[in-house]
Design a binder for these strands. Sequence first.
RNA 1: GGCAACGUGGCGGAAUGGUUACGCAGAGGAUUGCAAAUCCUUGUAUCCGAGUUCGAUUCUCGGCGUUGCCUCCA
Length: 453
Amino acid sequence: MNKDIFLTNSLGNKKEKFVPIDKNNIGMYVCGPTVYDDPHIGNARPLVVFDILYKVLKCKFGNKSVTYIRNITDVDDKIIKSSLDKKISIEDLTKMVTKNFHKDCNYLFCEKPTEEPKATENISLMIKMTEDLIKKNYAYTNNNHVYFEVKKFKDYGKLSNKNLDELIAGSRVEISENKKNPEDFVLWKPSKDNEPNWDSPWGKGRPGWHLECSVMSKKYLGIKFDIHGGGRDLIFPHHENEIAQSRCANDSDTFANYWVHNGFITISNEKMAKSQGNILKINDFKNKINGQVLRLALISAHYKQPLDWNENLIEQCQKTLNKWYESYVQIEKKVLIPEEYLSPLFDDLNTPGYIANLHKLYEKSQSGKTKDKEVFTSACNFIGLLKDNKNNWLDFKKEKSIISEQEILLKIEERNKARENKNYKLSDKIRDELLDKGVLIEDKDGKTTWKLK
RNA sequence: GGCAACGUGGCGGAAUGGUUACGCAGAGGAUUGCAAAUCCUUGUAUCCGAGUUCGAUUCUCGGCGUUGCCUCCA
C-alpha cells in the first residue's frame, strides 16, 4: 500500500506522518502489564489497539520488518503488596497472572509480540544502566538508594508538557529524606528481607519502576527506535522518566520518535477504580461473551477518545457480529483489501471509520458473490475480527446457552402443533419463552429454524 | 492552582471551510396467522456568544459544561 501512515504523537501532541528510522527494521515498544492482578478491560484496550497498529505497520512495511516488544513487569511494589494480600508467594502470583494475561490475549485474538521480555530477567542490565547514570553524573546514591536527578536533564517535561517548577509546586511529590530534590525518582532501592532482591553495588535491593522499559527497549530495539506506546496515564511520570533515563544513559538526543497513547475506559460513565468497585476483569466475560465481541467493542471508538463500557455497547457489537457472520467465508488464499477501504486505518488508526467501511463491504457481500464475501471476511480478519470460524462462533453460543438443543426442538414441535390447530396464542407464547432464553425462531418456506441470539 | 482533551441526531460514532458518513434504535411499506429474517422507503444532530470568511459544525477568541493527568494506574 502506497498510502502513508499518520499517527498522533504525544510528543508535540500533533498528528504526524510516520517516517521510520529504517523501513526494513521498525521497532515498536508497548508497555505491558504489571502482573499483580488479573488484567481488566482497561488493560485490554492497549492490547487490541497496538495489535492493530502492529498489523497496519506490517501491512505497509512487510511482515518481517516490524519488531513488536511488549514487556512484563514482574517486580514492583504493587506485586509485593498483592502477594501479601492474597497470601501467595510472589513467584506464584506473577506466574499465575502472566498465564492469565496470555489467556486473555488469546481470548481477544491478539497476535503474539515478537518478544515479551520480563523485568526480572534483565536486572543486570538495569544495574548496568544505573551505574552508567551515576558515572555520567545524572544519578546519585544515598543510603542504599539511587536516584535520578531530574534537573540535570534539560528536556524533562517535554512529553507531558509540564515544567519542573510547577511540578514541584504541585506538592503531591513524595518527600523523602534520601532525595536531594523532591522531583527526583528512584532507580534502585533496598529491599527488606522478605522482599524480592538482587545483589548490587548499592546492596541488596530492587529496581525502581521505569527502568525496565528503558533497558529492555534498548536491548531489543536499540538506543533510538520508532514507536513507544501505552495508556495515557503512563505519559507522566512513567514515560517522562523513561525518556530522561534512556537519553542520559545513552548520551542520545532522542529515544522513541513517536509516542502513541490510548484513552481510558469508563464503566457506565464512571471511572473504573478499585474504590468504585467496578473493575471488570477480562476473564469475567469469558463465560458469556465471545472475545470477538469485546474486540469490536474496544475499537468502536477512536483509540485516543474515552470509551464508555456498558451493556448497550456489548449488545450492539454482538448484534453486528451476528450479522457479519452471515457473510463469513473460509479464506483459502490471500485476498487484497481495496486501498480505499483500508485507508482510515492508515490515518491515525481510525477504527470507527474502518468499521463503517466494513459495513459497506458487508452490504456489498450480501449480493451473494463469493468474491465479495472473501473481501469482506479478509477485511474483518485484517483487524482481528471474524477470526473465529463460523462454526466456532456458533458453538460458543451453544455452549453458553441456558437451554439445550433437545429442549428447543421439543418446544418448536409443540409450537408447530399449536399453529396447525390455529392456537396462535399458545404458539406465540412458546416463541416468546424461547426468545427469553436467547433462542430466535424463524418460519421460512413452511419450515421452522432456530438460532441463538 | 497548573497542563491537556473533549462537547455532532434518541443512543453509539466518524468526517468536513460549501450537499453532515456508518451502525443501533424509531417510522412507513413488501412479506407473515402474528412474528423473525430479508428487501425497499424515511425523519431526526454539529454546547453558547463574538470574530475571520461570499460561506464556519470545521479556523480564531471568549464563555459554559464534561473528563483526564499533576510521582499507584492501561
